[in-house]
């Protein structure tokens, strides 16, 4: 899935799979922070976006 998304020109960093057990609160926080930062750095997605009028 990630490969396909990347292939059509959407940045890979916008999609992320992670396995976090219910006990791994710290990991969850780290992953969320990490992704938020990466996506922020990429800026808003302007591609493959449906515009409703």
């Amino acid at each position: 899935m990630g490969n396909l998304i990347e292939h059509i020109g959407i940045e890979r960093e916008r999609i992320h799979f992670s396995w976090i057990s219910s006990a791994e609160a710290t990991k969850f926080v780290d992953v969320v922070k990490d992704i938020t930062e990466k996506v922020r750095a990429l800026g808003p997605n302007e591609k493959f976006k449906k515009i409703y009028n």
């Binding site: 990347e6 292939h7 059509i8 020109g9 959407i10 940045e11 591609k47 493959f48």
Partner: peptide
């Protein structure tokens, strides 16, 4: 690069 790809498709 991502933009070129997107344009291509």
């Amino acid at each position: 690069d991502p933009d070129e790809k997107y344009q291509y498709f």
